[in-house]
Design a protein around this nucleic acid. Structure first.
Lengths: 256, 256
DNA sequence: TAAATGTATTCGAGCCATTCGAACAGAAGG
DNA sequence: CCTTCTGTTCGAATGGCTCGAATACATTTA
């Protein structure tokens, strides 16, 4: 464990509030009672926290409980908008989705996790296994692997260490050695592939978007049914389109 | 002032944390120094809060400061997904945007404010003056007025009292009497119109989505350039489409 | 290179706010 | 009407938050 174990003197009151918010996040609404059973704090303590959260506008009182307000959505959307990659990638993602007919994602890395910050569906898009804002293990996505391929070695190591390589399908890379080989293969072609590694019947391809130092700041990926994403389209056509869009975005980022 | 002035004994530590988050929300990134000048707390206090927020994953340390992480986006998106209206309205909004070629919104009310929770652009959509998650005064939007028209009188009164009727253009309704007249007119036609009331050159039309007790739980609206949204299309065709979609959504909500 | 300036981070001590538990109120159900 | 369950209020105590000062670190200036 080389990872930092956090601040020496955390603000425990704030930690409690975060626990409450994360509890509410999972459910449509919760009663005070439910929270007292889930959290090791006195009923009155949680109640007072909730009152404060209501006062600040982040929690709403419903007929039979409490839920998070859409002020959380406002914060999230603003945070996304503040990302350099988002604004320049958005329209290009849209057009690529139209061209390919498949789901196109813009993904960034955060705390060692892959986070889709924007997605656009094409004409034929099927239900996908990720959604905006979700934090997904890097090695399970084409975009995540593409980013890993262009991160400093020590970062890659610490990410693997921190969140081990969980298997979700037969094809998921769960061995560090295999992953390292995969990453150098990705660097060769500049494209990462996902062949049913995140879910059955689903394929994906992604390319990193890099800064002036050649370090990944995100990735663009296309995902869809394995049945459609195969053959030359998958291994040649899509990569070409992805490399083009990534290059365009890189240029936009440099000169804006 | 009939509004509650908040809890008698708020958790001030939590309030401080919220202030920090809201400060970060506005900017791409902030240094600790900036925050000490903006907030009346000791440098070490803010520092300790930030450390805790980093530990929980909601704040990231950048090269030269701090910013909110995309965990906030995750929370916001989840909150939206938990909304009953969102999931049923989404696809219908998409199709209406395709049909009309204009921007279509799904809006709900929260704390007396109109909040667009989902928007889909059509073929000809122009840049709009609101975005997802933003909290907008009810009287400035077609959707907001449509919702107000189907809220209990006392709620409407308290909303007007709480957030007064700010003018943003010549046409914005800023007088309560005029607004009440407008609301009864909306109830007659079941459709609300916005004629350059939220921004110049922009028109909009919206209809409320109501529950079994005929109380608004949200609204669907179409907005676009005044030049296009006019004449019979604006006053007849769009309202017909909106009423249909709203009715469909109401049925979906009742039987699901 | 060193000094100087401006940051961030650590730490001790005091005191205030948080926390708890218990008591109260209010709703729901039998 | 009583019982049970959930939410709300309140006093007291103590433990954690806050502050300010001191330290460490980075960046600029002479």
């Amino acid at each position: 464990m080389t990872a930092d174990s956090g601040p020496s003197r955390p603000v425990t009151t704030l930690e409690k509030a975060v626990e409450i918010v994360e509890l509410l996040k999972g459910e449509d609404e919760l009663e005070l009672r439910d929270m007292t059973t889930e959290l090791p704090y006195a009923k009155s303590t949680i109640h007072r926290h909730l009152e404060t959260l209501i006062d600040t506008g982040y929690v709403l009182r419903t007929e039979r409980g409490y839920r998070l307000s859409l002020k959380t959505l406002d914060v999230g959307i603003q945070t996304r908008r503040n990302h350099a990659l988002y604004s320049v990638a958005k329209e290009r993602v849209d057009t690529l989705a139209k061209e390919t007919g498949e789901k196109v994602w813009c993904v960034i890395e955060e705390n060692g996790m892959a986070v889709p910050i924007y997605g656009h569906s094409g004409e034929n898009t099927v239900q996908s296994n990720v959604s905006v804002g979700e934090h997904v293990p890097m090695h399970q996505m084409a975009a995540g692997k593409a980013i890993l391929a262009y991160l400093p070695d020590d970062r890659v190591e610490s990410i693997i260490e921190q969140h081990s390589l969980a298997k979700v399908t037969e094809n998921t890379i769960s061995d560090p050695e295999t992953l390292y080989e995969e990453l150098s293969r990705i660097r060769e072609k500049e494209v990462a592939f996902n062949r049913e590694e995140s879910g059955y019947r689903l394929h994906g391809a992604g390319t990193a978007v890099r800064n002036e130092e050649d370090v990944a700041i995100g990735a663009i990926s296309v995902s869809g049914p394995a049945r459609r994403l195969q053959g030359e389209l998958f291994s040649e056509e899509l990569p070409r389109q992805l490399l083009e869009i990534a290059s365009d975005i890189e240029i936009d980022l440099l000169y804006s």
